[in-house]
Design a protein around this nucleic acid. Structure first.
Length: 460
RNA sequence: GGCGCGGUAGCAAAGCGGUUAUGCAGAGGACUGCAAAUCCUUGUAGGCCGGUUCGACUCCGGCCCGCGCCUCCA
């Protein structure tokens, strides 16, 4: 039985899909005006893992991850760059797709873009207005009246008074309550025509929160199973999504809310506002993409994840051990044998709120047993790794791959040449020369391993 | 100020009321021409103070420290 930590309940709960055998899941994705950073990588990888595990559990999954392609920051950036919104967002969607693919993240079933769902958002705002939950301001905006929605604050565990809005931020005038948020923004003259839509409330554009409510309902129905995102979206974004959707439909919006922990740098949250973020592309110049995925998955999704070169290197070494155990395993996909004790422990770990750290620990125990002379276990190790989206490459390819600067610029042909020279020296019992060659290669980041089948090499 | 999360061995990171987590690093040994990889052996970790219990890292309370949210942010 799968158990999931539900933010709404603040505890792990048995997970029962609304429709038997089927899971509908929505995750808040990227705002596309810049490159994805490691924090985005974590969301993508974590929920990719969740989706894979649900599938491995025999469930049919419909996975939606939205793309926010209209908001203040996008407009500002496009104006700065002197390009259209569409050109800017299109470009960064392309980069995002590349990053996701590198990290082994499978395409969601739907990747709705906010700009394609404006009519649905308007429809929902209309319903909110009809239900007495929305009001117009003097500026022509439409706001949500938070005080009129009884459950407001349930997800973040705060009462309206506790939130004490205005303490850290100046309150917009025209709001009935400081926590009221905008559903529809009236167009401003300075804004590009591209961001102006006709509506019953005049020309304008949607507020940020409404897109997820509208797209979620359109693609997954008014009530669905899982909604996820980064911890920072819990309040106010997800709180507002609940208020909007339930305020419009009168039905429960989402059963299970999942929030992944932050990536940190030097024990501080990695964020755009702090400017201490690393983009995925930067990291991939130095570390293998699978190492990044492994680094993310070896921590629990709700824990903070501290990024540093040392930790990444640690992860790289650990993954190397796994791939080393896979050497000699014939290629080809193999089904997991769930009757195996290891597989059962893996499953128990995953069923307990996606316990990837423990599941990974099982992988290492399998590597150990495989190394002790149980090649069948190595085959299962790879199969189980595949459930997490890991260990599917040719071991030699992984072991010989490395950062561009590794290898001291030596090509594979040059390496092979030197290995042969060393073999000749060894044959002539000129061990001093053989060791000299090996040392030189080691200094270039290439390690040699003499085995029964000859000499193989890998990157340090 | 309000709300919430966490403090585990050199580093990273889990589960668990009593039995080896796991990985990296370290020490010793096997193997090897020497190495590497691998295997074997090896670490009396659980912020502090109380309480519950036959027994607590694991439950309860207090304290200290760190972090997050309360504002755009994954």
């Amino acid at each position: 039985m799968l158990r999931i930590h539900n933010t709404l309940a603040r505890e792990k709960q048995d997970f029962t899909p609304i429709r038997p055998g089927e899971v509908r899941m929505y995750v808040c994705g990227m705002t596309v005006y810049d490159y994805c950073h490691l924090g985005h990588a974590r969301v993508m990888v974590v929920f990719d893992m969740v989706r894979r595990w649900l599938r491995a559990s025999g469930l049919r999954v419909t996975y939606v991850r939205n793309i926010t392609d209209i908001d203040d920051k996008i407009i500002r950036r496009a104006v700065e760059n002197g390009e259209s919104i569409g050109a800017l967002t299109g470009r960064f969607i392309g980069y995002m797709d590349e990053d996701a693919a590198a990290l082994g993240v499978q395409k969601p079933d739907h990747e709705p873009r906010a700009t394609h769902y404006v009519p649905q958002m308007q429809d929902m705002i209309g319903r909110l207005e009809k239900n007495g939950l929305a009001y117009r301001t003097a500026e022509g905006d439409v706001n949500y009246a938070v005080r009129r929605f009884p459950g407001y604050g349930r997800l973040s565990g705060k009462s309206l008074d506790e939130l004490r809005a205005g303490e850290r931020v100046e309150v917009d005038t025209g709001k009935g309550d400081p926590l009221d948020f905008v559903l529809w923004k009236a167009a401003k003259d300075a804004e590009p025509e591209e961001v102006k839509w006709d509506s019953p409330w005049g020309r304008g554009r949607p507020g940020w929160h409404i897109e997820c409510s509208a797209m979620g309902c359109t693609l997954l129905g008014e009530t669905f199973d899982i909604h996820g995102g980064g911890q920072d979206l819990q309040f106010p974004h997800h709180e507002n999504e609940i208020a909007q959707t339930e305020g419009a439909t009168g039905k429960r919006f989402v059963n299970t809310w999942m929030h992944n922990g932050f990536v940190r740098v030097d024990d501080e949250k990695m964020s755009k506002s702090l400017g201490n973020f690393f983009t995925i592309r930067e990291i991939l110049k130095v570390f293998d993409a699978e190492v990044v995925r492994f680094f993310i998955l070896r921590a629990h999704y709700r824990s903070p994840l501290n990024y540093s070169d040392t930790h990444m290197n640690d992860a790289r070494l650990a993954l190397t051990r796994l791939y080393t155990a896979l050497k000699g395993v014939p290629p080809g996909a193999v089904d997991v044998d769930w009757s195996l004790p290891h597989a059962q422990r893996f499953k128990a770990a995953m069923d307990d709120d996606f316990g990837t750290p423990e599941a990974v620990a099982v992988l290492f125990e399998m590597a150990n047993e495989a190394n002790r002379g149980n090649p069948a276990l190595a085959v299962q190790l790879r199969a189980l790794g595949g459930v997490l989206g890991l260990l599917q490459r040719d071991p030699q390819e992984f072991l010989q791959s490395g950062p561009a600067q590794a290898g001291g610029g030596l090509s594979e042909a040059e390496i092979a040449e030197r290995i042969q020279a060393r073999l000749d020296a060894r044959k002539a019992k000129d061990y001093a020369e053989a060791d000299r060659i090996r040392k030189a290669l080691a200094e270039a980041g290439v390690l040699l391993e003499d085995g029964p089948g000859g000499t193989s090499w890998r990157r340090a």
